[in-house]
Amino acid sequence: MRMGRGLIGIVAALCVALSPLAAQAQTRFEGWTSAIIAADWRDGRGHPIDAFDNARRDLVRSFLAAGFPRASMVDYSLRTDVAQPTSPQAAVDGFTEMATRADRGCLLYMTSHGSPQHMVFGETGEMTSDRLVSIIRRACGARPTVIIISACYSGQFINALQAPNRMVLTAARRDRTSFGCGAGERYPWFDGCILESLPKSADFLSLAAETKACVATKEAEAGVALPSEPQLFVGGEMQMRLPTLRFSRPAS
């Protein structure tokens, strides 16, 4: 009986000692606002396609698996060929409102078409660098913020979004297109590489590296003459913080 009590005591002590680590692993992104927005639903000729919404749907699943809480995650499709379409302003307002309640950090992921001047944001809307900076500043302030933009010419957003508390990953240089936004594609290639890389990445830094390598391989195999060259910016504060924000993984 005494030995049984001793073993129980040891197990209890170990549980107490390990519980802070377990709690930390479960709550790294607790209090983070996350938003995933499919901002277009058409190919280059204006015909409906599913690639952007496929990406939105599966990115939600993947970021939930990585530890982002559903209670503080919003996702929107801005397509208009549905019964109750979401307006671009409603998507911005939803992200901003959620950020007032979950204020420890921000993740904003947008997938769409892009031009050298803006990203398509809804049927006739345009997301410019100035507008995106204003949205991020109002919603996220000085908290740690990760912004991922999947669109042609999306590197145009890098300079405007730079700040010590931000990481910005884009699908292409400011003067390059990205690929995979046509009929018959399951995802835009960059989004597909994010989805492929996320389950094996430890954190956002390794996710960026894995994704860039994936995109380069896919474009080389397809014989792309001018590769998209995804761009990455990491502010000084985030260089220190990101390695501590490790993604959750199912227990093996």
Rank of each mutant, 00 (worst) to 15 (best):
D130N: 13
T100D: 00
F179R: 05
I147A: 07
G44L: 01
E185H: 03
E210H: 15
K218F: 10
R57I: 15
T27G: 14
A38V: 12
P88Q: 02
I158E: 13
G192E: 02
R186M: 05
I158W: 13
I149C: 13
C15I: 15
E229R: 15
P243M: 04
G67E: 05
L232T: 04
T111P: 11
R79A: 02
S129G: 10
A66I: 03
R166W: 12
Q162A: 04
R137P: 04
D203W: 09
A91W: 13
I149T: 02
P48Q: 11
I10Y: 14
M240N: 06
R56D: 12
R176N: 09
D43M: 00
S62N: 11
T96W: 09
P164R: 05
A151S: 03
F247I: 03
N165D: 04
L108H: 11
A22K: 12
S129W: 02
P230C: 13
Q26I: 03
G9R: 13
V60E: 11
A216N: 08
G114P: 02
A90G: 11
R2A: 15
L64G: 08
G236L: 02
R101H: 00
E221W: 10
F204K: 00
E210K: 15
G9W: 09
I149F: 14
G125Q: 09
T33A: 07
A71N: 12
L245G: 01
S129K: 08
E185A: 03
R143I: 03
I147C: 01
W32Y: 13
Q231D: 14
S197T: 11
C181R: 03
P230I: 12
T170S: 04
P85L: 08
Y76W: 12
K212E: 15
I148V: 15
Y109A: 10
P85Y: 12
S112K: 00
E221N: 02
P48K: 06
F29T: 02
S201I: 08
L21R: 11
S252W: 14
P144A: 02
S197L: 12
F247Q: 09
L195Q: 06
I10P: 00
G46P: 00
R131N: 09
G46L: 10
A208E: 02
G180W: 06
G235I: 10
D40C: 00
A171N: 04
E30Q: 07
R5S: 12
R101P: 00
D75Y: 15
M110H: 10
A51Q: 07
R61F: 08
L232M: 14
S150D: 15
Y109E: 10
G125M: 09
L132S: 08
